[in-house]
Design a protein around this nucleic acid. Structure first.
Length: 968
RNA sequence: GGGCGAGUGGCGGAAUGGCAGACGCGCUGGCUUCAGGUGCCAGUGAGGGCAACCUCGUGGGGGUUCAAGUCCCCCCUCGCCCA
């Protein structure tokens, strides 16, 4: 830089030294952020305990608990997409504080888990160090955005003082069982109960073991096995998702549709392994039913319903040479049409059923399909494949022998892994039967319209059908010596009759199948909560007593997991904690009367989701060392609001986050909360009564020729509109542009810091809130931001003199028009803020400010209303102008202005006058004119008389306050 | 394939069935300035007209209504979720 051009800022300084500039904005912001911290401005009082404060200005206000989905801090720091939801909640909280409510609002950090561990492995640093650094960055960045969090309530899931209670809750889940017969304390049926009550029932003989053996005849291990079969957290050999590339097993929810891990995109293999599970399936019905009590979007509820996947149907046993084959079907009424069985290739009975003639083919088939993902296997457009086992089963309804096939369109993970195939009533079975020439008897007589749509004449000869028929239609060929469905027309009736017959004859029973599986809860990783579990020499698991918590994660340099060739299905997981033999092998007195005993610690750790299952509860009472949350504090913040709705479940008043957590976090968290509720630890039946999904911020992202994302900040647009990327080695290559959600994976994040050079945090907040409704995705365009900066400058100029810095408001009554604009603004902005419509609230504030700009001087009343209403969105400017207007302290608890209803209506109303629906003229009449007077005034209008040209209107419609339509 | 949601200026978006395009960006012109930038003022859906005004216009097609971006039916495109 040379002297040839003057510093542009210097010119402004001369002429307007007190103009609102980026430099001034940044100075004000950091000053107020320090002030808030020093004064504990956003400390929120609890009703009792350490955090109680009856002197707080809003201590007696109505409570409001607002929650953000807390972030998983990555080494990259925040990008400008993150604060979209966070700013929305902050604006809402600041607004509600000014409306007098006692607002609980804070932020925590979800810091255990795979990405942190992977980052640590890559950089060779301990995850505790990299994670703490990332958390510190997030804290600094969020503070810089002016978030009004109560800093005392922040938590980190990796803090032993926090995960002590994660382990404690695990213990409560481990030490309970689900009794579907129990009457819950709220009167509902089905409840978690302490496992001790179950053991007592076995001991007293009140409850029998499954196989009828007497409790007293069993040894310890046998008893433990039986009890474990009831626990809500249990160890089981179960088909799990083994991911050699990650070196760990992962949950169903973490596997993508094409059978890969959502982290790292490695192949995932189904394998039976001994793992910790959570019996979330016990809660399937309650998780489903209670969705009706939640104020969530329908799309989110639908996603949860689909994931739970409740299908009523029946279990039916088919006799076979290898014993009974149990199938699950949603259409037991079609049993008469079942002409073959199909087993999943992994079904355990397949080897026993395969005859020696078919053995080679079956073995080959099972090998062939092993590599296919579930999604590929069930894809609708794929040619069905399968192989005959050589064996036959008996259809209990028809008594006929039907062939048993193996085919990969049947999945081991759904139902029983075996189906009865009804080719005339199921499209997949129809297709399969057609390919292999199997019998397709008709059991329903489809209506004529169905045949018409198929383009064929009505017939029961299914060889001429093009597809299966599904729906209500009269049954045919559906009778045996006991029952007959023939002639019935309702599927519901058919199902009921067959189910009764199955039960009466011992062939099966009505049952409900769920897509939801139990939650795989252990991971063979280092960076997670250790299980508070030790194993004794008999292989029995023992829960550590509460006073041994927290069980801290042992420090080690060898935290890297053992990973494998991603395709090495035969590899076996190894936990990093296994290597720490000094930690693993311990002698402990568990206080169970057995004295010190040698144990082996559980070496799996909990999955990333554990810490987020209950964090909102810890925010309530973060300093409590006696309990995870004080019951009175929990009831105050999260108790059911039965005055709002009799079936209100309680929980967080507003939860804001991305839709990507629709089935993972939100399902797990609800499950934990319900267990705590059943056991009487919380008063709320649901954790989040209202949930709002904020949209994404989209940004340009760039891919090179290999379809790999390249950092967007190193891409430039060429003169011809194409894009090129300059790699760190200096090479330049062409790339293609796409829009995508801002984030690490697409390498298109824009850091908020880049923003403070030209603008400031209040401008960013305004821009994020103004650029669209909170739930809409929006593209990021940095050049659009200047509009909100200009707006702040104009507000500033309306309150302060740019040359002197002095307040320039005048103490005179605003004129009548200004009063009306002001009160309409107050009314409109308040309504918009209540409804989270910040974009339209900002538009109204801009209009009001533009009105003030046109006045010769700014009336104090108008300036104060403007600053108060603006301050939730632009809090730093709000505070600064509030001071300049002569007020002490903070604006955070100043009361919002009230709209005077009398000033919301005008004296006169301008009516558009339509002729046949098209606006042709306008008239102005008194606001209190009645319908007839308005009509008369319209018909007397010169222009209308001219337009009508003597024609008498057939009808005149007057919509009071809105418009007039003259029909001719 | 199924479910849900969305299609409005050059762009982001606004509109209890009642004046389509609020507000912002961009663009055009003007003022300030030696100049650039900032700032300020005005204009800005398309087409026609000297003008007052007129015609068209919310993905496409139909319908309900005095009146449809909004409600109903069919179709197209995009997004998300589940297969």
């Amino acid at each position: 830089m040379s002297t040839e051009s003057a510093d542009p800022a210097a010119i402004d300084d001369e002429r307007a030294p007190f103009r609102y500039t980026s430099a001034l904005g940044n100075e004000i912001e950091q000053r107020w952020q320090d002030w808030w911290e020093e004064h504990g401005t956003f400390h929120t009082p609890n009703p009792v305990g350490d955090l109680a404060d009856p002197t707080h200005p809003n201590a007696d206000g109505e409570k409001l608990f607002v929650l953000d989905m807390f972030p998983y801090p990555s080494g990259e720091g925040l990008h400008v997409g993150h604060p979209l939801g966070y700013t929305g909640t902050d604006v809402y909280c600041r607004y509600q504080r000014m409306a007098g409510r006692n607002v609980l609002y804070t932020m925590g950090y979800d810091a255990f888990g795979l990405p942190a561990e992977q980052y640590a492995v890559e950089t060779g640093q301990h995850p505790a160090i990299t994670t703490e650094a990332a958390v510190a960055t997030y804290r600094r960045q969020l503070r810089r955005l002016g978030m009004s969090y109560d800093p005392r309530r922040s938590i980190e899931t990796i803090d032993p003082a926090y995960y002590r209670w994660t382990q404690w809750i695990f213990g409560r889940i481990h030490d309970s069982w689900y009794d579907p017969e129990a009457t819950r304390h709220d009167g509902g049926s089905g409840s978690a109960r302490p496992i001790a009550e179950l053991i007592a029932e076995f001991e007293s003989g009140e409850r029998e073991t499954f196989d009828g053996r007497s409790w007293s005849s069993l040894n310890k291990a046998e008893r433990a096995d039986i009890v474990d079969g009831y626990r809500l957290a249990y160890v089981a050999d179960a088909p799990v998702n083994w991911c050699p590339g990650l070196g760990t097993v992962v949950a169903n929810e973490e596997v993508t549709a094409d059978g890969r891990s959502d982290r790292g995109n490695f192949p995932v293999f189904k394998r039976n392994m001994r793992q910790w599970m959570m019996r979330i399936t016990a809660y399937a019905d309650r998780l489903l039913e209670d969705l009706d009590r939640l104020d969530w979007t329908d799309s989110l509820k639908t996603m949860q319903r689909n994931w739970i996947g409740r299908s009523p149907g029946a279990r039916i046993d088919f006799e076979s040479p290898a014993g009974d084959i149990t199938v699950f079907t949603t259409r037991p009424d079609t049993l008469f049409g079942a002409t073959f069985l199909v087993l999943a290739p992994e079904h355990p009975l397949v080897p026993d059923l395969t005859t020696s003639q078919m053995a080679a083919q079956v073995v080959q088939y099972r090998r062939d399909v092993a590599g296919f993902a579930e999604a590929e296997r069930t894809a609708g457009d794929r040619q069905k494949t399968g192989v005959f086992t050589g064996s036959y089963a008996t259809n209990p309804a028809t008594g006929k022998d039907i062939p048993i096939w193996v085919a990969d369109y049947v999945l081991m993970g759904y139902g029983t892994g075996a189906i009865m195939a009804v080719p005339c009533g199921d499209e997949r079975d129809f297709e399969f039967a057609t390919v292999y020439g199997l019998d397709i008897p008709a059991i329903q007589e489809p209506p004529d319209e169905w045949f018409e749509r198929q383009g064929i004449d009505p017939t029961l000869d299914t060889r001429r059908w093009r597809t299966a028929f599904v729906g209500d239609a009269p049954y045919v060929n559906s009778a045996n010596h006991d029952i007959s469905l023939d002639g019935l027309t309702s599927v519901d009736d058919g199902i009921r009759i067959v189910n009764e017959w199955l039960e009466n004859n011992g062939f099966g029973e009505a049952t409900v199948n769920y897509k939801l599986r139990d939650w795989l809860f252990s991971r063979q990783r280092y960076w997670g909560e250790p299980f508070p579990i030790v194993w004794d020499r008999d292989g029995i698991a023992h829960l550590l007593p509460d006073e041994m918590l927290p069980l801290t994660l042992p420090d080690t340099d060898s935290f890297a997991p053992r990973t494998f060739d991603p395709d090495d299905e035969e590899s076996n997981p190894e936990s990093p904690l296994d290597r720490l033999t000094d930690w693993v092998n311990v002698t402990l007195d568990l206080g169970d009367g057995r004295g010190p005993q040698p144990y082996r610690r559980e070496t799996n750790v909990m999955p990333q989701w554990a810490g987020s299952c209950w964090y909102e509860l810890r925010y309530l009472d973060p300093t409590n060392t006696e309990r995870f949350v004080d019951p009175e504090v929990e009831r105050y913040w999260m108790g059911p609001l039965t005055d709002v709705r009799p079936d209100h479940p309680g929980g967080v008043d507003l939860y804001v986050g991305g839709v990507e957590h629709a089935v993972l976090h939100l399902l797990y968290s609800r499950f934990w909360h319900k267990v705590l509720y059943d056991l009487g630890h919380v008063s709320s039946a649901e954790p989040y009564s209202r949930l709002f999904n904020q949209g994404d911020v989209q940004a340009p992202a760039f891919k090179d020729e290999r379809e790999i994302w390249v950092p967007a900040r190193d891409v430039v647009e060429e003169a011809d509109g194409s894009y090129t990327y300059t790699a760190p080695d200096g090479s330049v290559k062409p790339v293609t542009k796409q829009w995508g959600r801002m984030g690490k994976s697409k390498k298109n994040g824009i850091a908020p810091e880049t923003f403070y050079e030209e603008y400031d945090a209040d401008t960013l907040r305004l821009h994020l809130m103004a650029s669209g409704p909170l739930d809409a995705a929006r593209p990021w365009e940095t050049r659009d931001v200047v509009g909100m900066f200009r707006f702040l400058q104009r507000v500033w100029r309306n309150v302060l003199d740019e040359t002197t810095g002095e307040c320039r408001v005048v103490d005179v009554e605003p004129d009548a028009e200004t009063q009306r604009v002001m009160h309409r603004t107050i009314d409109g902005v308040r309504a918009d803020m209540e409804a989270l419509r910040f974009n339209t609230a900002i538009a109204k504030l801009i209009e009001f400010n533009n009105h003030i700009t046109k006045l010769d001087a700014t009336p104090r009343e108008a300036a104060e209303a403007l600053v108060l209403l603006l301050s939730p969105i632009a809090p730093h400017v709000g505070e600064e102008l509030w001071r300049k207007l002569g007020h002490d302290g903070t604006i955070a608890y100043a009361r919002l202005p009230e709209a005077d209803p009398a000033l919301l209506v005008d004296d006169t109303v301008e009516y558009p006058v339509q002729v046949n629906g098209k606006v042709r003229t306008r008239i102005t009449v008194a606001a209190d004119a009645d319908r007839d007077a308005v009509e008369a005034a319209a018909l007397a209008d010169q222009r209308l008389v001219q337009l009508l040209d003597g024609v008498t209107p057939t009808k005149v419609i007057v919509v009071p306050g809105k418009m007039i339509n003259v029909v001719v």
